[in-house]
Design a binder for these strands. Structure first.
Lengths: 209, 209
DNA sequence: TGACGATGCAAGTGTTTGCTTATATTTTTA
DNA sequence: TAAAAATATAAGCAAACACTTGCATCGTCA
């Protein structure tokens, strides 16, 4: 039963020919995932769409799962880079500027390929256990540290940090897919920053009432 | 190819015997979904786990999809009822009480069967197009109306309403699964209410800066 | 009680799918 | 340039899968 063990390629593409094959396979996989969903993704269809023979595909990927894992890895690389770039831009030292940079970073990452992102988030079963900590989670930790350093203290600071990351990720994710107008116009980011800064301005956890 | 068309049972369970069969099938489906995930859900395994013959299963469900749809329908009924009950409890007329009731309603719904809820949200492919509008979305609309009636006005009121619903759903959903301690202690609800009420207290959309 | 519809079941069927084998062709290397 | 390594491909295998057939048994009601 445990036939799906390895993820490493059984052969590394050395020549340009085989590199083109690998690229074609990954591109075809993304195409089918976005258009038809994970349930309709088969290795035979991938090979057909990519214009390569099914056996060639299995020269470079040990099994179907490995193809999706590699595609997800590359997608993660791109979104991480987008987040880092957005966070690296110069900005003011105040809370609101920091929050705007944070939300903007999530937005930049989410805007790269929303359709593919949606497939990974909603359809593709969890592969290889949980996914590695993404840039989003890492920078939420950073922002929590920033909050603490800003004099914002609370017994629930850690919970507030988790909520901050969750709200950013969820709202931006759904916003790009369901409220594209607001996402493009900047209204979504503005409203997010307004909400988060009002929440965190005083202290993140004076609690209710 | 379009073999998966009907959802209605091909025969209605009339005797107690067959009703027990249907219940066993649904219960087994939930069990397998939670334990092994949608990818490992097969009709043969359902029948085996339910202790009924595979042909008996197909007497009352036209196909595999119909079983999952029915299970999801029942789960939706339960969560909707939990939300409605939570919202029907008497409460103060102010914004914070309203928000607390709203967040509490999402929490009540999410607490019913978080594991099954997670499977439906993350693993089960979208069945029969989009899901019917849940109680969550309906009551977010209500709350938006409440905001408007409370004198809170904004050109972005509709966006704020969408954000309100999205934040509630996402944070409660992930919170129950990943922060069960905070969810049980009430800290999660408190922090949510603090965030939302500070955001909405003045006006939902003075925007940032 | 007996006839008939409702239900249960053993044993399949045809198809899809992930993946392999055996062989041919191209590119690199010595 | 010839051997060796890398890459491509046609054809197909075994397993898993959703679903069916044909018949036996049970429950109900005349």
């Amino acid at each position: 039963m445990p036939s799906k063990r390895r993820i490493e390629p059984r052969r590394r593409p050395l020549q340009a020919r085989s590199q083109a094959t690998v690229e074609a396979v990954l591109q075809a996989t993304a195409y089918i995932l976005v258009r038809d969903g994970y349930a309709r993704l088969t290795t035979n269809r991938i090979a057909e769409r990519a214009g390569v023979n099914i056996a060639s595909l299995y020269q470079f990927f040990p099994n179907k799962e490995a193809i999706v894992v590699e595609l997800e890895r590359r997608h993660g690389e791109r979104t991480d880079a987008a987040m880092m770039a957005a966070l690296a831009r110069p900005r003011g030292p105040d809370l609101e500027s920091t929050l705007r940079a944070l939300v903007g970073a999530y937005m930049a990452a989410q805007t790269i390929d929303p359709a593919l992102q949606r497939v990974f988030a909603e359809e593709v079963p969890r592969l290889r256990g949980r996914r590695s900590a993404s840039a989003g989670e890492r920078c939420a930790v950073e922002v929590t540290a920033f909050l603490a350093a800003s004099g914002v203290t609370s017994p629930r600071l850690e919970l507030a940090g988790w909520m901050l990351a969750t709200v950013c990720r969820s709202v931006v994710y759904h916003g790009v897919l369901e409220r594209s107008t607001d996402a493009c116009s900047g209204a979504l980011v503005d409203e997010m920053v307004a909400m988060l800064s009002r929440w965190l301005r005083a202290a993140p956890s004076a609690s209710a009432a």
